[in-house]
Write a protein that binds this DNA or RNA. Structure first.
Length: 548
DNA sequence: TCGGTCACGTA
DNA sequence: CGTACGTGACCGAG
């Protein structure tokens, strides 16, 4: 693995600057992507302030980055919170209070203390002129910028090494450093995913949408008329309902009451039980479904987010909340009924892999619970858990999930008490997390992510230590997959425990093998010494739906 | 124009 | 059983 860090700063149209522990240099180049490719056969680990700023020109230049260190991503890992602008990253590594968030325009007051040539102010904070692009004046200032990045990287590296390595069998490289590698790769992947997009077949998508929401409206009046017609089809089922606004829950509640149905709210799971016996309720539920499709995933959504090249693009973040990746443009909550429209391009296939029972397996690793780890050697870990608890498999599953998510109602009560006796270490790990959350004390995930807490966040904390660690494993897996993909293959979707790869048809088997092998390789270091097995279901198909 | 609430899709 | 997230429509305050 290329571990030698080389900080990189790119000045578009002029060239780029490199800083290494051994010294700095600058290279004049018009096309930075091509120039990077020519620099060296063996790529270093590139250090940059953030992939979002630095990697985009490389990606567009066709350069395939192998390894990186993303100062913004690692700063959030180390220090928590959401600030990852350059000024905040600098302040966090130097134990300074966070500067005012960057605004669009520089305020004259900010510049009191600054000149173009001074990167670090007398108060130790990073120059706001430099933060907002002043560093790119010429290749000399860019070189200084790369040197500052390298300094921050070295401080981050030291801070990560000072964190505990929680593995049963610690390795040569501490787990928090490995997490930093994976989080950096995920930040790069997030930029790449935003550029690449998810392949969608417009005709298939239209074929799914049209029977439910009608053809694309020609103008606003047309759209309004169709909306009214859809609404009337529901309202005529109910007494005195011709003026009811179906989009207003309060009015729907009243409408249902006049109809003789008194409910605390109008959520569909509450209406569902009445659908089989009541035509009006069934109509209302069908309306809801069509309305959701029409407003959130309808023609305007397609227009806004699907490009002329048939790619659905959103913006991706590498770590939100407990540390999961997020995506906009509906990429993470696309209804299952639309998935047949996610299709490989001609000559290509989609290779899908999803992790099985990942959260309970992760709990076994992070808590160091030997008994739960023993269960996690099984392909289906709920079966051995059920055997130990003396209950059936569905009860065991509910008990394990209730433990991880903080149950409130007593349905799993009996099995939970049994869990307390059987999986002492796992249960106390979760209880300790919940205690921290309730007290508002920050926590760290297994991989080292700082989770800041507000007093009262008990259930959030209980879940975050598992969900966050699972996200770390997932990103390490995704990074390994990304690094091993053949030319022409791309990760096109990350969905918490699922990876979707678009690949040439002739590479399908190789990519499927890669997805499995990468998981085994990742688990070997991530879960070292635990004995926990991680399993992935891998399939190859033309469409996302068919790969299930 | 803004934040809060309801509702609902995914994991 | 519960947590997380993003989206869109509505409400009421400003």
């Amino acid at each position: 693995m290329p571990d030698e860090p080389v900080a990189l700063a790119i000045v578009p149209g002029k060239g780029m600057a490199f800083a290494t522990p051994g010294g700095s240099r600058a290279v004049q180049a018009l096309d930075v992507g091509a120039a990077i490719g020519e620099l060296t056969d063996e790529q270093p680990r590139f250090v940059w302030w953030s992939a979002r700023d630095t990697a985009a020109p490389l990606i567009r230049g066709g350069c395939r980055v192998q390894a990186c260190w993303d100062l913004a991503a690692v700063s959030r890992l180390l220090h928590g919170g959401s600030r990852d602008d350059v000024g905040a990253v600098w302040a966090a590594t130097h134990e300074l209070s966070p500067p005012a968030p960057p605004r669009g325009e520089l305020d004259l007051l900010d510049l009191d203390d600054e000149s173009d040539d001074v990167a670090v102010r007398s108060d130790g904070q990073l120059s706001r002129i430099w933060q907002t692009g002043g560093w790119s004046r010429d290749l000399d200032t860019a070189m200084r910028w790369a040197e500052l990045a390298l300094q921050v990287q070295q401080r981050q590296h030291a801070a990560l090494r000072a964190l505990p390595d929680p593995r049963a069998t610690p390795g040569r490289t501490p787990l928090p450093v490995l997490t930093a590698y994976a989080e950096s790769a995920a930040a790069l992947l997030a930029v790449e995913l935003g550029e690449t997009g998810l392949p969608v077949d417009r005709d298939v998508l239209s074929g799914i949408l049209e029977p439910v929401i009608g053809p694309p409206p020609v103008d606003e009046a047309h759209a309004a008329a169709r909306r009214r017609a859809r609404d009337d089809a529901v309202r005529r089922h109910f007494p005195n309902a011709s003026d009811v606004d179906l989009r207003n829950p309060a009015q729907v509640l009243q409408m249902l009451a006049r109809f003789g149905l008194n409910l605390p709210d109008t959520r569909s799971w509450r209406l569902e039980p009445h659908a089989s016996t009541s035509e009006p309720i069934a109509a209302l539920l069908a309306w809801r479904k069509a309305e959701r499709l029409s407003t959130t995933y309808g023609w305007s959504w397609l227009e806004r987010h699907v490009g002329a090249d048939g790619r659905l693009r959103g913006s991706w973040t590498a770590a939100e909340g407990a540390g999961r990746m997020t995506a906009s443009a509906g990429l993470h909550n696309m209804p299952a009924e639309l998935r047949p429209a996610v299709r490989a391009e001609p000559g290509h296939v989609l290779v899908r892999a999803d992790l099985g029972q990942v959260e309970p397996r992760v709990l076994a690793v992070v808590s160091g619970d030997a008994a739960l780890a023993q269960a996690a050697r099984d392909e289906d870990m709920y079966a051995p858990v059920a055997a130990r608890l003396g209950c059936d498999r569905p009860t065991a599953k509910v008990a394990v999930l209730a433990a991880m998510y903080g149950q409130t109602s007593g349905t799993a009560g009996n099995a939970l008490r049994q869990m307390d006796r059987t999986y002492v270490q796992a249960m106390s790990y979760l209880r300790n997390a919940e205690e921290s959350g309730r007290a508002g004390t920050p926590l760290r995930t297994y991989g080292g992510r700082l989770l800041r807490m507000q007093p009262g966040w008990g259930r959030f904390a209980r879940n975050a230590v598992v969900q966050g660690a699972a996200a770390e494993l997932f990103k390490a897996w995704a990074a390994t997959v990304r690094a091993g993909l053949p030319a022409g293959a791309q990760i096109v979707l990350c969905l918490h425990d699922e990876l979707l790869v678009h690949a040439r048809r002739e590479d399908a088997e190789a990519v499927a093998g890669l997805l499995s092998d990468a998981l085994a390789a990742t688990a070997r270091w991530w879960a070292a010494g635990s004995g926990v097995r991680f399993v992935a279901d891998v399939s190859v198909a033309e469409s996302w739906a068919a790969a299930h």
